[in-house]
Each structure stands twice: as structure tokens, then as C-alpha cells.
Amino acid sequence: MSDKYQARPLTKQRSRITAVVFALGLGGLMGLGGLTGFSGAARADFEAGWLAYQRTDFATAFKEWQPLAEQGDARAQFNLGILYDQGKGIARDSDQAVRWWQRAAEKNMAAAQHNLASHYLAAIGGNLDFQEALRWLERAGNLGLARSQYTLGKMYGYGLGIPRNMRMAVSWMRKAADQGHQGAQYNLGKIYRDGNDLPANMAAAVYWFRRAANQGHARAQSRLSVRYARGEGVQTDNVQALFWATLAAAKGEPLAVDYVTEMRRDMSSADVALTERRAAAWKAEPEG
């Protein structure tokens, strides 16, 4: 993602050619600037803006990025949108944020498409625009952005702005889950567990709950614990059930707190002690 939109450094020779072409007034004709990358100076300006951003000197970041954004640099446009959206270095202005994200989104920058969609979903002032959100999320989802794919899965799953369609929900969730998105993995687990409009599949539910649980997703850990306790999609195993519930309870998952209390009552003290040691030593394994 970042590579795709990184301003491409030009060789000195190409910079000179670019300068000559612009001097001759042929820049627009040849499509330079917005489409073919930026000069070394523009890249340096972008980096200066980035360094200023990192040291929280947002006013300087704004000054560096604004001219680049005006010239059509998608990353600068996107970042300018962030400054406006968060009120960093400039008065907060969501109209301006949308304006800049729109320009970057039209250049197929998935992050900008996602943020633009987020604006339409954020319901500032109580109004949502599901149709605009869907339009941009689908573009970003098709470019492979997991967050957008996950949100699309939610929208199809709950019929937000579109008729509910579980097949589409699963299709988008699956794309995000395959990329390691914890929320998507957890939601796929729930869909396979409950079936909804599709056949339930407990083994598949366990698979997806486990992948999210291994990454540290507390609700997935709690649901995986229940599968072990009930022997649904997996062989009954009370030690495993207590193990996963203990991890989820440690993160404050309310149902898991109750499970732990109940399960400890019915287990040997040796099993409880062993499980607690294993839970204390456990570490999340983020995917990717």
C-alpha cells in the first residue's frame, strides 16, 4: 500500500529532463506531476512534512504538504485530510478533510477511499450516507484494504444501506479474515456458529475463533472457550475451555469472567493451577 503511493524518486538526469519539459510548458501535455511522480524537491518537501508531523509540528507539516497536495500528490492530499480531520496544526474542518480525501480517493488511493467512506458512516450530526460509504468501501475493498472489506462484511451482514445478504457478508469478511483481520475472523466465526441464512458449520466457527483468539481477540477467546466446554466443532476439553476463558476474562470480557468462576468449581486444583500457569505464559501471535 505505502509503496504503491510513495512518491518515486527521479534520477538527476530525469529531474533535469522534467525541468526542461516544464520550462517549455509541455508538462501538462505529457501528464507530468500528478501522474508520473514528483521531482526530488517535491519528495524532499514531503519528507520534511513527515518529519515535522512526527515531532508534532503540525503547522510545518501542513505548510510542506499543502503545495504538494495542490499539485496532485495523493499522499500529501491524504495527509492534509488527516490534519483537517483531527485538527492538527489547523482548525478542525471535516469539509476540508473530505475534499482532500476525495481527491486522493479518485486517484485510487485505498486509504483515502476508506477514510472518505468512514466520514459518510460516522454520522456526525446524526446523518449517515450509506450509499456513498458503500461506493468507496467497495473500491477500497477491491484494492485489498482489509478494514474496508471488514466494514463491507458488517454492512451486508446487518443490511446497513443495502438488503441483508449473508453470502456477500461472508465473502467480504473472508477476504479481510484471510489477511489476518481479527474482527473479521471473529465475525466469520459467529456467522458459521449461528448459520443465520447459511448452514451452520461449527468446525469452521472454531477455526476462525481460534485464529482471532491466537491474536489476542478477547471475545473470540471467550467463544472458543465455549466451544471446548460444549464440544461444538471440537472435542470437549475443559482444560482448554478454562484456558481460553481465563485469557478473555483477564481482558475484562464479562461472559468469560462468569465461565471461569463456574469452571474452576468443577475442576481439580491441579488442572486449575496448570491452566493458570499456561495462561500467564501465553503471548498473542499477531498475523502479519
Binding site: Y53, F78, A111, N115, A117, A123, K154, Y158
Partner: peptide, 29 residues
């Protein structure tokens, strides 16, 4: 504000709105 969103778009609409406010992509380099 939340009551208004729930009234117009349901509870899942509120969750979608909260998610949208917290799940934006960060500044790019």
C-alpha cells in the same frame, strides 16, 4: 447524539458510526 443515531439507523447503525470514527487509516508516508 447517540440516541438520535439509534433512532434513525438502529443500534448497528450506531456501532457502524463508532467504528467509522475509530477505524480510519492513519497518515501515510
Amino acid at each position: 447524539e447517540f440516541a438520535s443515531v439509534i433512532k434513525n439507523h438502529g443500534f448497528e447503525g450506531l456501532l457502524a458510526a463508532l467504528r467509522a470514527r475509530t477505524d480510519k487509516m492513519p497518515a501515510a508516508n
